[in-house]
Design a protein around this nucleic acid. Structure first.
Lengths: 333, 333
DNA sequence: GAACGAGCGGCAAGCGGTTGCCAAAAGTTG
DNA sequence: CAACTTTTGGCAACCGCTTGCCGCTCGTTC
């Protein structure tokens, strides 16, 4: 009979004395079949240890009940929240999450997309490194939502970094800082570009000087060079592209005997794991990234289930500045 | 023609004037078809923007080119290395990784396994919370490898925590500690049980006293209670189930004015992100977890490609103690 | 009791590939 | 040039499940 193979719908049908269509319906479409038959079929299926084959199910419908999430670096704690949120929401919808690491590269992103297209019901791309044009094109062909990136006509969820960056600048301003540097991350970072605009504009408004340095790798190891560059500029405050970079800088400052915040203040972005217990604890811009992950998947599910109200789906989550020990009054020179 | 739908092998065949089988072979089985035909088919496929549908391809073969990795908590940095390693190895084999969070629960593990069975070619379970019996049963039915867990007859990769735990104990012993506590993690943790055995045995050998406390949630938030319990025991050294718990303890100690390591030494496991920059930096047992992830997937791939040399596949990776500021000479009372 | 309609189950055609088998074509050999 | 071998491409049968459509059964209604 079963001969070691896993039982199929045919086995169940034969055993239960009904047609395969009835089995299929009894399992997936309960109201379409008489209660008695349904229970009988289910009982037989149970007894045989039948599991519906997701692949076979997906073929006719084209729906795999699977979502893909691409992050630029799985080991960056910033993405933990996003990953966890996306995973939760996906699971809540009875679907499965596929995770992909795109290694900070737009090419890898689109290659992955290509490879998985057809195998998943939708894509969430966090911190995409692709150009607006590429994204728009892909969005026309695939179900796609973005995190930490906005492109017209493509659904997205971002944390309000513009307002947040303003908060950072005002915080620094109120501490008497007049000269800040921004330690930039990857050149293709959309967020980075937007932030710098806000920093520059706010600096002008507050009568501060602002310079951008970099790019630096958005990782702890990038912090050494970033710290040295910041000191070289004689800045009294440094805003790092993300917390990893900021933490790397803190270390370098410690090694060089530069005191934080007495000699220089440091601010990061993301409020990652560790930002609260590094030395000194890091002032950083926090956002609910798990919520972002959840919402992004939510948008995807909504899009999947018919309503294609694309354009409207540009969610902006609030951000807030968490002030810790790495920022303090400006040095008097 | 294409009418908006994505082109299938039939479209390509018609356009190229050959049979679908030829298209299939030209694309997947190059040596089976004449160079001229092959190039022609490929050119047409390219022009039409044809992508082979992974679902359809998987149906007859039963191979999805997909691996699943289950971790007990995606937000635990300990798993980053594992995730990254598994992702790399999977990708290197031209496959895709599916990530699942099992929330520290054996039931969720087997539920996920059930749901994904048939949709993936194999499973890697990190830090499984299932019983040996369950694992063995599942391993009979699915292709399965374990990380940080050994079960007879099931392929696995672990980091040598026994030797590592001995290193920890000897380190503490040489610092003059005579009374250590072990702050345990989840009750179902296999690693935890093994470690405690080694701690108890080594303590006996070295003439130290050892007590186990807990269980505590293996997260930073578990550290408060763990720290208080450790102090309540009057221990001079504390070994925490993992670095998260240890970091949580460090915080609590700081809040209570307990000096580390002057008043108490603290050791963790895993050497996670953050262990080197918390205050004080954490002494911890490090292992190459990315390598573990890579190897685990490697075993799976090998098993998939025929050779079912199961029993032999019990890999043990070396571990080493990273000594930092959280351990020091024992207090003289 | 005939006419009608709702409910239920079965038939069979896909979904988009892969692959064993076979025959035609091309190449080789004496 | 015939006989034989090797390539090469096509046919068609799956893989396991879903679903539109059809018809049978049975309960209702007049």
């Amino acid at each position: 009979m079963s001969s070691g193979k896993r039982p199929t719908i045919y086995d169940v049908a034969r055993e239960a004395g009904v047609a395969t269509s009835t089995v299929s319906r009894a399992l997936a479409n309960p109201e379409r079949v008489n209660t008695r038959t349904r229970e009988h079929v289910r009982e037989v299926a149970e007894r045989l240890g039948y599991r519906t084959n997701p692949i076979a199910r997906a073929l006719p419908s084209g729906r795999t009940r699977t979502m893909a999430l691409f992050v630029s670096d799985v080991t960056n704690p910033h993405f933990f929240g996003i990953i966890r949120g996306a995973e939760q929401q996906t699971r809540a919808a009875g679907c499965t999450l596929i995770l992909g690491d795109t290694e900070e590269s737009g090419e890898v992103e689109s290659a992955n997309l290509d490879r998985l297209s057809g195998a998943v019901d939708g894509f969430v791309i966090a911190a995409s490194r692709m150009s607006d044009k590429e994204i728009r094109e892909l969005s026309a062909r695939h179900r796609l939502t973005l995190i930490s990136r906005q492109v017209e006509g493509v659904p997205s969820v971002i944390v309000d970094h513009e307002d947040g960056t303003r908060q950072i600048m005002e915080h620094l301003g109120s501490l008497g800082h007049t000269s800040v540097v921004y330690l930039a991350g990857p050149r293709r970072s959309w967020l980075g570009a937007r932030r710098w605009q806000v920093i520059a504009a706010t600096a002008r408004r507050l009568g501060m000087s602002a310079r951008r340095l970099g790019p630096f790798p958005p990782a702890v190891r990038g912090g050494g060079a970033a710290a040295d560059a910041a000191i070289g500029q004689g800045a009294t405050a440094a805003i790092a592209h993300n917390d990893l970079l900021a933490i790397g800088m803190l270390r370098r400052f410690a090694d060089r005997g530069v005191r934080v915040p007495a000699d220089i203040s440091v601010v990061g972005y993301d409020d990652i794991f560790g930002a609260d217990f590094c030395a000194p604890p890091l002032t950083t811009l926090a956002g609910q990234f798990d919520e972002a992950g959840r919402l992004a998947v939510g948008l995807l599910l909504r899009a999947r289930d018919g309503s294609r109200s694309r354009a409207a789906d540009q969610v902006v989550l609030p951000s807030h500045l968490v002030i810790r020990g790495s920022t303090g009054p400006a040095v008097i020179r």
